[in-house]
């Protein structure tokens, strides 16, 4: 087992004061069969009251509103996570599993992805298990796709990014999800953190008879003890770590820093 310390901080600085903002943060990891989360500390600036909740996918939420003028908004979460406990995560979402089986949102396959799936199916050894197929898709995708920043955006669909053959972790995850769902393997998006990276990360969980198996196509690995899962959903839009709206004008700078280190 491994003990990781993490620090997630989002800071928005406004050029002019804003009168009101509303936010929903999904940046609090929770304990599962695969990770044990402890010592969570949350700091918000302005230091107003926020509410705790859970969304329909089972993720923890922290949400609230600031209804007085402020020029800085900050949300800061720290904690420790034990990882590497177990490989497969518990399957307990039976009543909502259909959400992870059908095309939705950013993961609706078009002609390009359908053709890619058909080509992979040709080459894939027949009779494989869901786990073997998932691993196969991940390896192939890792070879057929190039990591490149600033060519895709948060709203880029799986089909669009596949047409370019390049993108970032979110795009790898979306394409792998599309391939698995076309193969009738339930697959979901995971937003998380990775040791040594300054940004949040994304990968995929596929459903196997042993539970959820987590595949990181960007790095071509099954998740390791360096990964901390934050939240899950059908696609990146469900898993936005921070969502907010502000009432008021002017420019703003948003800084997000993520750090994960071994304790």
């Amino acid at each position: 087992m491994t003990r990781l310390g993490f620090d997630y901080c989002m800071k928005i600085t406004y050029e002019m004061e804003v009168g009101q903002c509303h936010y929903t943060m999904k940046c609090i990891p929770q304990s599962t069969r695969c990770q044990r989360v402890e010592n969570i500390k949350i700091e918000a600036v302005p230091a107003n009251k926020w509410q705790k909740g859970k969304d329909s996918f089972g993720n923890l939420t922290a949400y609230g509103s600031v209804d007085f003028p402020h020029s800085v908004f900050l949300f800061h979460v720290t904690g420790t996570v034990e990882t590497g406990i177990r490989k497969f995560d518990e399957y307990k979402e039976e009543s909502i599993i259909g959400n992870y089986k059908y095309p939705h949102g950013l993961v609706v396959p078009g002609e390009g992805l359908r053709a890619y799936h058909a080509a992979l199916k040709e080459m894939m050894p027949s009779g494989g298990t869901a786990y073997e197929k998932g691993i196969y898709f991940m390896h192939r995708l890792h070879q057929d796709f190039t990591y490149e920043k600033n060519v895709t955006y948060i709203n880029t669909t799986a089909e669009e990014t596949w047409a370019e053959r390049k993108g970032v972790c979110q795009d790898y995850a979306h394409i792998l999800i599309a391939l698995c769902r076309l193969e009738n393997i339930p697959a979901r998006y995971v937003a998380g953190m990775l040791e040594g990276e300054g940004l949040s990360h994304a990968w995929v969980e596929i459903l196997t008879p042993d539970g959820w198996c987590a595949l990181d196509a960007t790095n071509d690995v099954e998740v390791t003890d360096s990964h901390i899962k934050i939240n899950v959903g059908r696609d990146a839009a469900d898993c936005m770590i921070n969502r907010g709206i502000i009432i008021g004008g002017g420019g703003q700078t948003q800084e997000i820093s993520v750090s994960v280190s071994r304790l």
């Binding site: 969304d55 329909s56 996918f57 909502i96 259909g98 089986k101 059908y102 095309p103």
Partner: peptide, 26 residues
């Protein structure tokens, strides 16, 4: 619980592909 789906009265995909189905209401 979606008993009506489990009991195979309505095929699952009619629920999940419906544009009126909102996962947020689960």
């Amino acid at each position: 619980d979606k008993k009506i789906v489990k009991d195979k009265v309505i095929p699952e995909e009619f629920i999940f592909i419906s544009s009126g189905y909102l996962a947020e209401c689960e």
